[in-house]
Amino acid sequence: MREMTCIVCPNSCTLKVEEQREEIVVTGNKCKRGREFAAAELKHPMRTVCSTVRTVFPEAPVVPVRVSAEIPKNRIFDVMREINQTVLTVRAAGGDVVIRDVLGLGVDVIATSSMLQSFAELKGEK
């Protein structure tokens, strides 16, 4: 049996996970997402990555980004490398794609803030 903490929501349930032949039995989860988490955690743990990308705009040297969906945990640092090689040259809005299909993982890196646009408004550029 393995014990793990479900990180899906702030409840942080302590999951007890038992592998019985083909099946995994999960207890301690307050909801079904805990079971899904435990199943994924045993076979192919997935995580999100949140970071920043550099920009060419002096008022906002970096802009926050994240992956549009979870990626394999063991690819986090590969994705970080891609993010750190990117420079944003347009005033992207929150949700805009910054890197499409990063490393062929099937997820995009997207901007998580429209700060570049609010800065433009502050300066009356828009």
Binding site: C9, P10, T48, C50, S51, T52, P64, R66, T112
Partner: peptide
């Protein structure tokens, strides 16, 4: 900039 905000209100993991 990390995620985990708004799970209760929006049911989504927002940054």
């Amino acid at each position: 900039i990390h995620d985990g905000f708004g799970l209760l209100r929006f049911g989504e993991k927002l940054t």
